[in-house]
Design a protein around this nucleic acid. Structure first.
Lengths: 118, 118
DNA sequence: TAATTTCCTTCTAAAAAGTAGAACAAATAC
DNA sequence: GTATTTGTTCTACTTTTTAGAAGGAAATTA
């Protein structure tokens, strides 16, 4: 996945706030990671609404950046409805997520008042 | 500080990615938290440039949201130069920071593969 | 005290990220 | 075929983020 960073001159590889949460939710949901489900999961974990559109444009951006990949799921035995597009984190996506986490942890540790709730 | 959320119908109280880092840096820098210094600190902690403008507009937004407050510093014994505007986190700002941290920690714990670096 | 230097803020403009919901598509049931 | 359900794609807009030019005030030097 490294070639994404090197060969292709990608526009941006930063990770926004909402982008990070969505990426994490894809990891958490595993094989059930498709837009509608992700929006649901976002709401239940945050008590904040996430429109389908937000999630979709974010997923598209994350895929363009190489943090995610996707493919259409098979038809299921369920009631009806269109096929799902299933998303999956790439190795590069996991790496970026880990870096982001390490950076935040480092900052928090430098600001002790945060921990105590002072 | 609670009235910020309730009485005044504030525009937005979300915390963007860069906003969070800047807010944290204000906490870390303490009495030395002024724009130019914050930009420097950002660069040294991330190896990523932060333009003065970015930092400034972000600080202004954070103040408008009630996460920060500021006042002009006294003239110092240094060489020369304009007065600094010193920023300080509000109780509300710390609360938001703590919530953001707790949420991230919760998500990470739900995605074990991240820890192992798998 | 006027010009200079230094440190720092304020302003302007543009790109990227985040938000919202309407429109559309495909699969099953009847 | 037509209705129903599940889910994606598209369009338009607001907020954040980015970048750097322009400007202001305090101490120093002449």
């Amino acid at each position: 996945m490294l070639y994404n960073q090197v060969t292709y001159k990608m526009k941006e590889t930063r990770l926004g706030d909402f982008e990070e949460v969505v990426l994490l939710l894809v990891g958490i949901l595993g094989t059930e990671a498709y837009p509608l489900k992700i929006a649901d999961e976002f709401e239940s974990q945050t008590n904040r609404a996430a429109s389908i559109g937000s999630v979709h444009s974010t997923l598209t951006r994350l895929e363009a950046k190489g943090f995610l990949e996707s493919e259409m799921g098979k038809a299921t035995a369920e009631r009806g409805g269109r096929r799902k597009r299933i998303f999956k984190i790439t190795a590069y996506g996991r790496k970026v997520l880990r870096e982001s986490r390490d950076f935040k942890v480092s900052l928090w540790s430098q600001y002790p008042s945060l921990a105590t709730g002072k």
